[in-house]
Amino acid sequence: MRKKIRIFQPKLSWLAIPFALIFIAYFVVPLILTLIVSFWDYTEYSIIPDFIFGNYVYIFQGCFSFEDGLCLTFKTYISTFFFCFFTWLITLLLGFSVAYFLAFYVNSLPLQITLFLICTIPFWTSNVIRMVSWIPLLGRNGLVNETLISFGLIQEPMEWLLYSSFSVVLALVHLYTLFMIVPIFNSMLRIDKEVIEAAYDSGANQFQIITNVIIPLCKPGIIIGSIFVITVVMGDFLTIGIMGGQQLASIGKIINTEMNYLQLPGAAANSVILLLITIFIIIVMTKFIDIRKEL
């Protein structure tokens, strides 16, 4: 009979208690309170415990009559989805290409780590400064306009470069492409190189290998990256605020404004709706993968 090897492993599960307590106090309870307060009433000075649907009714006021065109809420969501879609598309294409280059063309591990870190370092610096740093390039007298004028390509400076939807998407891509690169790169590193060799030997060209072998095998990475980018843009209020010159609408900005005016139950109701939409998007996307297997 084989002797059972006794592995001495003390029970360490209690070590997760402090970690769990932080998430209860600063994540679970706040979200529950948000849900509760979204049914409360409020005046200019205070919030009043109650159970009313007024905050939700107010959000969708006039949304289902379509007499005066779209209501503010629908317009804001359409604007938010617009930023989501373009940011998602560009970060996906760019992030995939960068990850593909790092995973398949860079063969030395130290070089691969170095180039990967070069992509990561800006993530650890200030988002606000990264946004501000576009001003000297995109402004009315910025580098882009000055250069194009001096080459005679345009006569007048282009006004839409800064404080526009263009600069918002540009800044979002600038800030969040890394969220695509990391999970896609991680998926690509797990692909057995022999599978690609086999496809190549069977006569597939590079485009076919990417579409028929690499993309299907990277699906989990692509989905995780997409969830990150879409959720971060759905709730964004800083980038759309700063890079949009405080002129463009997003659902995050509405919540932020309501909070600044202490209309907390209204902000809570908007948050609940935003959260439900975000959860819906995530559920649809995670139908395809098991996140835990990807670590």
Binding site: V28, P30, L31, L33, F228, V232, G235, L264, S271, L274
Partner: peptide, 25 residues
């Protein structure tokens, strides 16, 4: 606990900020 942690990463930041502010108010 694991899924709560992941959820915390992707919950919109403004919603979390509002929730914590509400809690302390």
């Amino acid at each position: 606990l694991f899924y709560t942690t992941i959820a915390s990463l992707i919950v919109p930041s403004i919603v979390l900020s509002l929730g914590v502010a509400l809690e302390f108010r």
